[in-house]
Design a protein around this nucleic acid. Sequence first.
DNA 1: CGGTAAGTGTTACTTGAGGTAACGGTTACT
DNA 2: AGTAACCGTTACCTCAAGTAACACTTACCG
Lengths: 227, 227
Amino acid sequence: MARTVKGPDARRERWKGHREQRRAEFVESTIAVVAKKGPDVGMEDVAAEAGVSKPVLYRHFTDKSDLYLAVGQRATELLMDRMGPALAADGPIRARIERIVDAYLSVIEENPNLYRFVVKGSFVDRPVEKDVVAEDKNLIATALARILGDYLRAFDMDSGGAEPWAHALVGMVQNAGDWWLDRQTMSRENLSDYLATIIWHAIDGLLRSAGVQADPAKPLTPLRLVD
Amino acid sequence: MARTVKGPDARRERWKGHREQRRAEFVESTIAVVAKKGPDVGMEDVAAEAGVSKPVLYRHFTDKSDLYLAVGQRATELLMDRMGPALAADGPIRARIERIVDAYLSVIEENPNLYRFVVKGSFVDRPVEKDVVAEDKNLIATALARILGDYLRAFDMDSGGAEPWAHALVGMVQNAGDWWLDRQTMSRENLSDYLATIIWHAIDGLLRSAGVQADPAKPLTPLRLVD
DNA sequence: CGGTAAGTGTTACTTGAGGTAACGGTTACT
DNA sequence: AGTAACCGTTACCTCAAGTAACACTTACCG
């Protein structure tokens, strides 16, 4: 008799969630071996770190590009875990900027090899919409652009610059962070302070041209960086 | 009798400068094929574009990394040819900033594939001191840092931020340029204007905190961006 | 005019990393 | 015993970077 009235096949249920967990384990193995050996690790290195052979790896990832993507997504989680509280916190605008910047710098400082691996992964040959680095920058820039745009529109100013300004601000932190990662001629605390200073001046200048005179020692209401 | 009184061997003199010229020709071939086929071209593509076989190419370049370096240096020449006049020109500070930014954006707009090829070349496995993109950014940032530092010191201010601020400003233009290159939702003229605006505000804010109230419609004396 | 310097040409080949074929094994369920 | 979904392995393929090894060309030298 056909078993159509029974539940799902338990042999199938047995493995529920297993593939996702396995994939996550391989991503962690990749992060571990990248930390150890640098951003140029190969699939053989990742497999060895995970204690499997390459065919096993390829059962869970389409190709190396797919692994880059998965690692990039995990790196984004780690970054947002750190930056999220700083983004959500309220307080004096300048201090908030400094905390956000510092959160980012602390992440790239703790695992510079992972940062470089992820950035390198942006150049692997594949559709640009799967570029995690570009996606992350866009995410942050879009949130910034929304806030800047809201402010500018509130004062009947041209908000056309909100988006490029947001991308410019993201570029400030990333490029200064890259330079600092290579040189480390100053402490992270100092760099965060300097970057917060110039970012604040940039934003302050834009607001002043909109007729707003903001106090850096106070919260900027209703400026919100999180949804 | 020994030929020590004669000039150098003409068989040798015949080829004087030839290798440098040949190498330059291969660099131009690379730029041409990259413009046509995109940043992922291989050595076979470059050789075919130059009308030679791969061994000939490898007589002039140590490896692909060496080709990346040579192309990056050529791209830097092209960039400086365009930016040099803008950097050297005097005039109202804000307008100067806009011309410099526009010069840069015009270069990456004219040959985006070359730009991507050069940036991708930064990730080829080799010593970081041969990274032309990092070198170019450092060159510009160092010139900026010198000027900012000079100004800050003239007013007894802490100039420790000059270098990170310079790298931050470079990052502004580069990241906004990358975003614009991918999207192109606005004209280059508009983007240059927006970027000049936020850069001016950032610099103005730094100067104000040093007690300087600069007029964007006037030259900033003795601010010089060229040696 | 043969020898030489410094170039050129070519095909066949090597190397190594990404990726896969093809097999057998394990465990729990039906 | 058959099956689902995982696991293991080695040998192998593919392809782009890079090279070995040969012959040829042109202009100069003695």
